[in-house]
């Protein structure tokens, strides 16, 4: 019975989607907002990468919420996974090659991650992409030596302060009588490293928050007891 109703539901949805597909014209839609942003972003925001101008400028509010979703998922994940029982078995340390490789990779990954975060307003990349690389920099050593513990206190402090500073920069604009999340500071010269006002600061906050969030979530998962 349930199988039958699922199949019927699927059929209905499939027909709906087929109907949409038939009626669609490919590659002809007019991006009216996109065009307006493409012609205004250089002057209004001052970031050479217009995607960044959208992510942190025009739709910065979305980005704040997205950070909050990651934060919430990490908090809820901690709640679900609970504490590790002290008697649980640990994986043995990895061999020499993996350990040495992890040690070598660590500084490189940190530098690449920070580079990608700080150039987010100029080139493809930014806080999310760089944050993920930062997280992996801190997570790979844990894969090599499962016995070592990451300091959850430090991770949650970085995460809290980075998230709060994003909102704080947004609130600063409100003290000046502007709307929440209005970009601050001088826009500078288009394409320079120090340009686009407060956007690089925001991306730094995003990068640190994403990095600590993901590192925390991954270590939580790796610290939870394995199921045999």
């Amino acid at each position: 019975m349930q199988r039958l109703s699922s199949a019927l539901f699927l059929l209905g949805l499939g027909l709906l989607i087929a109907a949409i597909f038939r009626g669609m014209e490919f590659g002809t839609a007019a991006p009216i907002v996109g065009q307006a942003i493409n012609s205004a972003a250089a002057e209004q925001v001052g970031a050479a990468n217009f995607v960044t101008a959208v992510v942190l400028g025009y739709r910065g509010f979305d980005t704040l919420l997205e950070l909050t979703i990651l934060f919430t998922a990490a908090t809820a994940g901690g709640l679900v996974l609970g504490k590790r029982s002290p008697t649980a078995k640990r994986d043995p340390d990895a061999g020499f090659i993996l350990q040495a490789g992890a040690d070598l990779l660590f500084p490189l990954l940190v530098i690449v991650g920070l580079y990608i975060i700080l150039h987010g307003h100029l080139t493809p990349g930014g806080g999310f992409q760089g944050g993920v690389i930062l997280a992996s920099a801190f997570f790979i050593p844990i894969l090599a030596r499962p016995g070592t513990r990451m300091s959850h206190a430090a991770v949650s402090t970085i995460e809290g302060l980075a998230g709060a500073s994003f909102i704080f920069i947004g609130l600063l604009a409100m003290f000046g009588g502007e709307a929440f999340l209005t970009p601050l500071m001088d826009r500078g010269e288009l394409g320079a490293l120090l340009s686009a006002g407060s956007l690089p600061l925001l991306y730094l906050a995003v990068g640190l928050k994403v990095g600590s969030e993901l590192a925390g979530l991954l270590t939580h998962l790796s610290e939870s007891e394995a199921v045999d």
């Binding site: 704040l64 909050t68 934060f71 949650s156 402090t157 995460e159 809290g160 302060l161 998230g163 709060a164 909102i167 704080f168 609130l171």
Partner: peptide, 9 residues
């Protein structure tokens, strides 16, 4: 939101 971020701290 800012309170929630700072609560653990």
């Amino acid at each position: 939101l800012i309170t929630a971020f700072l609560l653990p701290v």
